[in-house]
């Protein structure tokens, strides 16, 4: 299918993109990898009057570690994130999640910034952003602002991105040394998006008990959420199978779990527990639980 006609302009800097957005007064959309926007436009579910192409802005690309955070430029593609040595070394859970997005062609075009700004309730990266206490670095007419991931995702396709704002980069907190992590996803068999996806980061201290736990869930509710109830059960406990199972039983507590035509609310609640247990076991170096166990 063919999108509705629109005007096209290429931005040469982030500042220019912000200006162009403001001039268009809400009728324009930014175009990055196009892999969320163009499918919607082809189905005529979205029909912006103008696209402002930011995909050639090199200032929005790249990966670096600054202090205790890893920065990823908004235009960095899923493929680049999944294979970048710094990401693989410092934040393997981010690489793992990026490698599970869509398929190779999608990962060659789709960008981290587009994924987070689009905020599909079944996107993979929001779970990792929450578990790694990401900050979203935004430039808008009001100046530069930083949003915590937990304040950014407001609803399906709704974020706190200010009007005429451009997401420049996202930075992730490096977990304590020795922490292990896992992203565990139950993909929708047709679309590949997460029916439920769980990111878990766990560190076990010298005394053999969990000292650090971050768990976040995507797909299950209409916004991704931090599963604090799971984290609370884990802290101070040894990472043993029955502890992990008990903790995972709380995976749906912090979200407004929703059913849809594909998966009922009860099924999603069940998947929250199963995928969380799987993520925790892998993060703690245990083999997957036997099927049906």
């Amino acid at each position: 299918m063919i999108p509705k006609a629109f005007a096209y302009e290429r931005a040469h800097s982030v500042a220019e993109a912000v200006d162009l957005l403001q001039q268009a007064g809400g009728a324009a959309k930014l175009l990055a990898g196009g892999h969320s926007l163009l499918p919607l436009m082809k189905l005529r579910l979205s029909a912006p009057a103008k696209l402002i192409d930011i995909s050639r802005l090199d200032e929005l690309r790249g990966v670096s570690v600054v202090g205790e955070r890893l920065f990823v430029g908004a235009l960095t593609t899923h493929h680049q994130v999944a294979t970048h040595p710094l990401v693989c070394q410092h934040l393997p859970v981010l690489a793992e999640a990026a490698a599970q997005i869509g398929d190779p062609q999608v990962r060659n075009r789709g960008t981290v910034g587009g994924n987070l700004a689009h905020a599909d309730a079944a996107s993979d990266l929001p779970a990792v952003a929450l578990a790694l206490e990401a900050q979203l670095h935004v430039q808008s007419p009001a100046g530069d602002e930083v949003f915590a991931a937990e304040d950014f995702f407001l609803g399906p396709l709704v974020t706190a991105l200010p009007e005429y704002g451009v997401l420049r980069a996202v930075s992730f907190a490096l977990p304590p040394s020795g922490a292990r992590s896992c992203y565990s996803k139950f993909p929708h068999p047709a679309s590949g998006y997460a029916v439920v996806g769980v990111a878990a980061v766990v560190a076990v201290g010298a005394r053999g008990t969990v000292e650090f736990a971050r768990v976040a869930v995507t797909g299950a509710a209409d916004v991704p959420y931090r599963a604090r109830a799971v984290e609370a059960v884990l802290l101070g406990q040894p990472p043993q199978p029955e502890v992990l199972r008990a903790a995972a039983g709380h995976a749906a507590d912090d979200g407004a779990i929703a059913g849809d035509a594909f998966a009922s609310e009860a099924y999603r609640r069940h998947l929250c527990a199963v995928m969380t247990e799987r993520a925790l076991r892998r993060a703690c170096g245990l083999a997957d639980a036997a099927a049906g166990a």
Binding site: L31, V106, S191
Partner: peptide, 27 residues
């Protein structure tokens, strides 16, 4: 397809496999 899922349209753009139904010619 109309949904960017089938990959029949895959070409190499600057050496990378992409779905040419989900790339604008201007891009």
């Amino acid at each position: 397809c109309d949904t960017s899922q089938c990959g029949a349209c895959t070409v190499l753009l600057d050496g990378q496999a992409v779905k040419s139904c989900t790339v604008l010619a201007v891009q």
